[in-house]
Amino acid sequence: MNRRLVLAAALSLAASAASANPFVQTIMFDPDTREPLVARPHASAAARAPAIPREIVAYTGGHAPGTVVVNTTERRLYLVLADGRAIRYGIGVGRPGFEWAGSPTITRKQEWPDWRPPVQMLQRRPDLPRFMAGGPDNPLGARALYLGSSLYRIHGSNEPHTIGQAVSSGCIRMLNEDVVDLYDRVRVGTRVVVLR
């Protein structure tokens, strides 16, 4: 059989499997090179995945290397590096009425944090649980960076489709893989600049 037809059939089979269950990844291999073949994701799965890649970009914001800069208008977070560069991440930000600006420091770091909704949130949403143990279903996601003495955090999310949107109660949301990357690069005492 023609090699091109074999590859097309393999990709079609992988795409069919993805459309049947977008949460299951099917890996097919090229019969000649044994390299993995990549099928296009099912449209609904692609629609759920945010298109905000983590990347190194030029940065001229004037902040010292090591500073975390949150630009809520852009819905991007920058970790300033040396030599006029920064790592840029996509974020979710506070919805209208929950925007804020300031310059706190990171006062605590937590892996797979537990979640206790603050009193103000429970007053707005009495249906929320009073406590949720850390884990994949927890709204704080894989990591949390606590900001000053406020209730705000930079944290992961169990709702990756909200990255790039203004939906939170003021916290800065990130994809779990992005917040893990940031968590490993910053320390307690790091300055965070939140811009509106």
Rank of each mutant, 00 (worst) to 15 (best):
P117L: 03
A86G: 05
P126M: 13
V167N: 04
W115P: 02
Y183K: 01
A86Q: 05
T60Y: 12
A39K: 01
T33I: 04
Y78Q: 10
A46W: 05
V180S: 09
L37V: 06
A144P: 10
D83I: 06
V68W: 03
R75P: 13
D184F: 01
G164E: 00
P53C: 00
V119H: 12
A58D: 15
A47N: 01
R85D: 05
R185H: 05
L182Q: 12
G135T: 08
H63T: 05
T72M: 11
G148N: 05
D30Q: 08
Y78H: 14
E55H: 04
M28K: 02
L145D: 09
A101T: 15
Y183L: 00
G189S: 09
G90M: 01
F131K: 05
T105G: 00
A20D: 02
P53Q: 01
E159I: 10
V38H: 05
R124E: 13
W100G: 06
S149V: 03
A20L: 14
V167K: 10
M132Q: 15
P139N: 12
P65V: 09
M132Y: 06
L5S: 12
A144Q: 08
I172R: 08
T26D: 04
R196S: 12
I154C: 11
Y89M: 05
S168C: 07
T33W: 10
A82V: 12
Q110T: 15
A39F: 07
R48N: 11
R88Y: 02
